[in-house]
């Protein structure tokens, strides 16, 4: 199915960059963080996903059509972001195509930004960020830089496929997950995952603006959250809250 999905490059793409992913998921953490990164790092569109498998949907910006799944970047960072939730049956092929493309660009590491739902989120004063890695060395790096490892549990959605595929290909990859609401856009969690990214990779962005605009973001993100909920329900996202049964 990979050959049915093309990554079309708009400009030259740097090699040895860090590749980040922000896809609609719990709390829209990855998308909120990605949108803030694009604006703070002034990333520009370098490539986009093209496929007849995608729903017949385009995103209009200034009256011009764009793919809902695009890669933004500068000379050091590539950021794959989707403005619409991926239909569950397209998660594997789209993620695989993006990872194969990233590999062909010799990216040095892949990091997906996401959330982990927590009960009574509204009562939490500080949100924790957890990491899962494609290799023991990646986990050690995260731990050495102060990020707690999510040692047991289930992961469902695009970030699960990213980690699995990278582990299979031997690519260094991390998933950073901030505690968040399951069903509501969570800009605070978006800010926390960016702080986690700064701790791990040194990419520092000012999250104060993101927090200031928090309520506006929650209002604006209602519809995307609603559609994301529908896809999460199809992919049995609540399994992430299940108690794992570890088979050694």
């Amino acid at each position: 199915m990979d050959e049915q999905i093309s990554i079309i490059e708009r400009t030259s793409v740097p090699s040895d960059a860090l590749m980040l992913f922000g896809f609609p998921d719990v709390g829209l953490v990855g998308v909120i963080a990605a949108e803030h990164l694009v604006s703070e790092l002034k990333l520009v569109e370098v490539a986009y996903v093209d496929s007849g498998l995608l729903p017949p949907l385009i995103v209009l910006h200034d009256g011009l059509p764009h793919s809902p799944i695009r890669v933004f970047g500068n000379d050091k960072v590539l950021l794959a972001v989707s403005e619409t939730p991926l239909p569950v049956e397209l998660i594997y092929p789209v993620i695989e195509a993006l990872i194969n493309w990233g590999k062909s660009k010799k990216v040095r590491m892949m990091i997906s930004l996401s959330g982990i739902p927590v009960q009574d989120r509204q009562d939490l004063k500080a949100l924790k960020v957890f990491a899962a890695g494609s290799t023991p060395a990646m986990l050690k790096m995260a731990q050495d830089r102060g990020i707690e490892v999510l040692s047991e549990g289930y992961m469902v959605g695009p970030q699960a496929v990213i980690l699995q595929k990278c582990a299979k290909l031997g690519l260094p990859a991390l998933t950073l997950m901030a505690q968040c609401f399951f069903n509501y856009p969570d800009p605070e969690a978006g800010a926390e995952v960016l702080k986690g990214l700064a701790m791990v990779m040194g990419i520092k962005v000012d999250v104060a603006k993101l927090l200031e605009k928090g309520e506006e973001i929650r209002l604006k993100a209602r519809d995307v959250m609603q559609r994301t909920q529908q896809e999460m329900s199809k992919m049995k996202k609540t399994q992430e809250m299940d108690i794992p049964m570890y088979v050694s």
Binding site: Y184, P185, L219
Partner: peptide, 14 residues
Amino acid sequence: SWNLKAGTMEPLKD
């Protein structure tokens, strides 16, 4: 998720 006539938006709920 909005009703223009009433000037209202429907919030997310659970």
